[in-house]
């Protein structure tokens, strides 16, 4: 059905709604997961992406809070998206289970958002961001849930995290090292982090961000745009 980028988004023969097409045959929204440790800036990255892309794209966000609706409420309070575009999934104290081992609640949230917008006058969504609850370095998203994933760490969490590796750091489609503005205050060696990340990740990209800076989310936004371009390119 889609011979354009077979290596980037191979078809997945599962029952988990991972098909790249809507029931009507059109391409569905691109799903990008954001994971990473507590406090690294996942929600701030989601908020900045929404602010930066909401004029050009129809976006929705699913949050996976650990024991509150804090993340969903942060996004609502800051009005980065209207409430109908934000859904909170409860994870029963196990955020990694909800994005990897048992993705059923998240898939339902994804499908409900797709269905609501596809059948409304607003039209179908272009992009769904699935934000994980803060977790450990092994938490990654199931390929049955998202098409690509971002792992967000920060310099203040320790500049040895890229060296330690782990599935998030090693395999995420984009590694974001956030809060670079704090590096001088916490004694973080950014060049060393970049070197370690490259050693762990090979050709996979790394973005250093400072979301407090003007347009600080730009490297992540540009990467998302690239993913979307690959996702929506029509078959030759």
């Amino acid at each position: 059905m889609h011979l354009d980028h077979p290596d980037v988004y191979p078809h997945r023969h599962t029952y988990s709604a991972a098909s790249p097409l809507r029931p009507d045959g059109r391409r569905r929204a691109l799903r990008i997961g954001l994971g990473g440790p507590v406090g690294s800036g996942k929600t701030a990255t989601v908020a900045a992406l929404c602010r930066s892309l909401r004029e050009e794209l129809s976006i929705a966000v699913i949050t996976n809070d650990i024991y509150t609706r804090e993340d969903a409420e942060f996004l609502l309070r800051n009005a980065v998206l209207p409430p109908e575009r934000i859904t909170a999934v409860e994870t029963g104290a196990c955020p990694h289970t909800a994005i990897r081992d048992d993705i059923s609640a998240n898939l339902e949230a994804v499908e409900d958002l797709e269905a609501v917008f596809s059948s409304s006058s607003v039209g179908p969504l272009d992009l769904i961001l699935v934000e994980s609850g803060g977790d450990n370095l092994t938490a990654t998203f199931s390929k049955g849930l998202v098409d690509a994933q971002i792992f967000v760490i920060d310099v203040a969490g320790g500049d040895d995290i890229p060296r330690k590796g782990g599935p998030g750091v090693t395999t995420a489609d984009l590694l974001v090292v956030n809060k670079t503005d704090l590096a001088p205050y916490v004694g973080a060696d950014l060049e060393g982090m970049a070197r370690d990340a490259e050693a762990q990740r090979g050709d996979l990209p790394v973005a250093f961000t400072s979301l407090t800076a003007e347009d600080g989310v730009a490297p992540v936004r540009d990467w998302v745009r690239g993913q979307l371009a690959a996702w929506t390119t029509p078959a030759a």
């Binding site: 029963g92 081992d101 048992d102 059923s104």
Partner: peptide, 12 residues
Amino acid sequence: GRFPAGGHAHSG
């Protein structure tokens, strides 16, 4: 208990 049907998020 690992059957992926959402039960992990509920305490009954």
